[in-house]
Design a protein around this nucleic acid. Structure first.
Length: 299
DNA sequence: TTGTGTTTTATTGCCTCC
DNA sequence: GGAGGCAATAAAACACAA
């Protein structure tokens, strides 16, 4: 049996023996006045057990409790809390990944805007030159006919360079972005109203489907799909659905490994269906047919 | 030493499944 | 209806700066 840690403010033994521990009367009489932390050895064994399987069957619980010299109830509580910690960390990691994808996409978008502006000014400049040339030659020979009218040329150029949607004013765009970020963070921190998970999954899906360099389709994802029970799928034995190299690992900061590689957004097909409902589709008179608005994901 | 923030252990209440 | 899961929360234990 692994005794409880001593020397950390423990004033008396918490338990005496595993057998006594399993006797309700003993436990009732010996209820600790204060909470006691588990020893590193106990935590280590619990962690290892959690890595094997994050849910506890009654037999395993009893066995673990016996080995550790704890109440079965304590083992169950530890697993419950451990699952909660794992989930929190996973959400943080998912958020970081999604934010990185978003930032990269935004940079892409900004670069495209710059390109667009540059090309448009080229069109204007070339059109100007053409107009000047036309005027000069018109003066020279008085002949009206040889060149097409500037308007025609310009229209022809415009056929090649698609007229873009009007750009939002930079200040207004920045303010709107700020507001969206605040709203998003509010949802994450308070959990009120919208779902941070769903919002984040939106962004992930957006990246995966239409993003450019930022797309990381290999990122395993947890999307809150139909099976609410599958909360830990994608992580080895965490659930019924297994993705690639799984396996529960311990927290980064406890030195026993990490939960890296598992994500809360796994059901990408469900998410794709969700996405398709939130994008506008090609139809005859839509100039942007088939494209997805950059802004939809925030609105 | 003390105040404060974080982590861990434990409880409560609600929900789902069998 | 009981068992077990989860979210929310309380409270003790711990870490650490001032």
């Amino acid at each position: 049996m692994l005794g409880l840690e001593e020397g950390r403010g423990v004033k008396r033994p918490f338990y005496t023996s595993p057998d006594e521990l399993l006797e309700e009367e003993y436990y009732d009489e010996q209820l600790p006045e204060k909470k006691r932390r588990l020893t590193p050895e106990q935590v280590h064994l619990l962690e290892r057990s959690f890595e094997e399987e994050n849910k506890l069957e009654p037999e395993r619980k009893t066995e673990l409790a016996r080995k550790l010299g704890l109440q079965p109830r304590q083992v169950a509580v530890w697993f419950q809390n451990r699952r909660a910690r794992w989930k929190t960390k996973q959400l943080e990691r998912d958020f970081d990944r999604l934010k990185a994808s978003f930032d990269a996409l935004r940079a892409d978008h900004d670069a495209l805007l710059q390109d667009n502006h540059r090309l448009r000014s080229q069109v204007v400049s070339l059109t100007e030159k053409l107009r000047e040339k036309e005027a000069t030659e018109g003066d020279a020979n008085g002949a009206a006919a040889a060149l097409p009218a500037v308007g025609v040329v310009r229209a022809s150029v415009a056929d090649d360079v698609e007229e873009p949607e009007p750009e939002p004013e930079p200040e207004a765009e920045a303010a709107a972005f700020e507001e969206r970020q605040v709203k998003s963070e509010d949802r994450l921190s308070t959990g009120s109203g919208g779902s941070a998970v769903v919002d984040a999954a939106d962004a992930l899906l957006y990246n995966g489907r239409i993003g450019g360099a930022a797309v990381d389709s290999s990122v395993e994802s947890y999307f809150p799909g139909a099976e609410v029970q599958d909360q830990y799928h994608g992580c080895g034995t965490m659930g019924p659905v297994t993705h690639g190299a799984g396996g529960i690992q311990s927290d980064d900061d406890d030195g026993a490994g990490s939960d890296e590689g598992c994500s809360y957004y796994a059901d990408e097909e469900a998410a794709a269906a969700f996405l398709s409902e939130h994008t506008h589709h090609a139809d005859g008179d839509d100039e942007d047919a088939g494209q997805v608005s950059w802004w939809w994901m925030w609105n």
